[in-house]
Nucleic acid binder design. Structure first.
Lengths: 110, 110
DNA sequence: CGCATCGCTACATAAAGTGTAGCATATGGA
DNA sequence: TCCATATGCTACACTTTATGTAGCGATGCG
């Protein structure tokens, strides 16, 4: 049983159902951001993805199901799990985080 | 007891300690993204923030502590909790999500 | 057949989040 | 002085979510 996170339906912790809230709710779940991140360069199979992030198969499967329902990833029989075009758009918004995180690291270094 | 999320120390679920992983780990915790989002326009006091997101004070306090340790927010006695300059930089990277989420909503609408 | 790989499920245990009550401190009247 | 209010925050029992390990059914290959 998968709780779909879709705009239009109230997100966990929010009654509004506004797209931004649904999105923040989806991305705020453990491993979700990480999964999208791991798929940034190439598709990965279920087990490869699981190994890459080091989470349990149970939760990996849940997150994959949620991300598929949200049409951010899809399962290609040949290649494995990969970002959809929507997912790639989202990733593009997140790519600047990589560089910024380095700056952040230096800024708060002891 | 607060588990600090800082680059240099391995993030939850990752042994690398790479800044991007630490950041994804921090932001992937429930309510964290939402809190940063709620502080985008003006500082909020503890209770105002709690009411805005509808989470328990326990977890709000945990997330605030983590975000303060990560130097993304700070507590000003006059104004309340607000983004630091680092936090504002991070928020700027996230602002495009707002618009994109609307597009996403339309794309996956039934 | 035997063996490997695929996505995925079962299930007991541990960790994380919830909801409600309330504490300690400070401030500002009456 | 006493009361009320607001501050950030803590305690604690309860529920939800995630972990770790084992293994299932299907598919392909020799």
């Amino acid at each position: 049983m998968v709780k779909a996170v879709l705009p239009g339906r109230p997100a966990r912790g929010s009654k509004s159902g506004r797209p931004i809230m649904a999105l923040l709710d989806l991305l705020g779940r453990r491993w979700t951001l990480r999964i999208v991140w791991e798929l940034r360069e190439e598709p990965l199979r279920f087990r490869a993805l699981q190994d890459a992030i080091g989470a349990s198969p149970t939760i990996v499967n849940s997150r994959l199901a949620e991300l598929r329902t949200a049409r951010l990833i899809e399962l290609d029989d040949e290649a494995g799990y990969r970002l959809t075009s929507l997912g790639q758009e989202l990733l593009r918004l997140f790519l600047p985080l990589h560089l910024w995180s380095e700056k952040w690291a230096k800024a708060i270094a002891p």
